[in-house]
Nucleic acid binder design. Structure first.
Lengths: 146, 146
DNA sequence: TTAAAATCCTATTGACATACTGGGAATTGT
DNA sequence: ACAATTCCCAGTATGTCAATAGGATTTTAA
């Protein structure tokens, strides 16, 4: 029951792009430095975000990535489902078909269903915009101290 | 973000012991048959429950396992934490020490914290007794149809 | 006392996922 | 042309999961 690095990094990348949005395309090495993630690994993860259309890219010199939409259009749940796969805590609940033949009489299934709903509620209730704002607020308050 | 078979089986084993409690010790091969789990694998899992004191055992002929306490004393969360380890969705939140050095300025940490609390709330809010009752109720309603 | 029935304990295995690293090919701006 | 980029694919080390297997130990009962 852990969220993988891939998923966590993906969220951080999205927030990073939101926070450091200048209108320009951000380069992988910049994001990697800011987020302290290996360039090569970050490249793989952002490529998933790119294929899903969550970020857009341009190649070549002065290329890079930027968010495709407003940060408020992305929930943490969207990012996690993309990079982690389903957040459903058991396979039995996924898809239309029941995996195992015990499902009909499985009392524990109700718990997993409830758990899945609770998880979704949290991750779908937080947007990248909210996280970005929080970071900007902190950065500003830090500036005041100088 | 999946609950492992080990964890799911452990919960089912506890519920099975609650439902089929006759005062006698239940044997591994009986539980295995009822729950459709390999005897050998079940043995390993129930041994963890045993070492934690959730079930008690007697060895030798006529031996077996039974719940150590009333089914209402066990939550699904207890069983899962025992067999799966922490249900905390990220390592950063575990223990007293902060794992990574970004924790101080990590906005995403709040999301994981919220997520962890939501997960705990669900799994700690359901007892083995409740699941066992549910199954008994279903079994009784089935009997009426005969 | 012996045999059978159980739990207990530890080792091994195959499959799979994770978290990377590395080497180029393709594309684009200057 | 050339440098800066993204893009794409391959490989690798490590670990976990889900079992399977074999035998040691303990207890009851014939």
């Amino acid at each position: 029951m852990k969220i993988s690095s891939r998923g966590r990094y993906a969220v951080r990348i999205m927030v990073d792009l939101a926070v450091n949005n200048t209108g320009e395309y951000a380069k992988v090495n910049q994001i990697a430095k800011r987020q302290d993630i290996s360039e090569k690994y970050l490249e793989q993860i952002i490529s998933v975000l790119n294929k899903a259309g969550y970020v857009k890219s341009t190649r070549g010199a002065q290329g890079g990535y930027k968010l495709a939409k407003d940060p408020s259009a992305y929930t943490v749940g969207m990012i996690l489902r993309l990079t982690e796969g389903s957040l459903c805590p058991v396979a039995c609940l996924e898809g239309d078909v029941n995996e195992c033949d015990r499902c009909d009489t499985c009392e524990t299934l109700d718990v997993w269903k409830e758990l899945g709903e609770a998880i979704n509620k949290v991750v779908d209730g937080v947007t990248i915009a909210e996280l970005a704002e929080k970071q900007l607020a902190r950065q500003n308050s830090m500036d005041c101290l100088i």
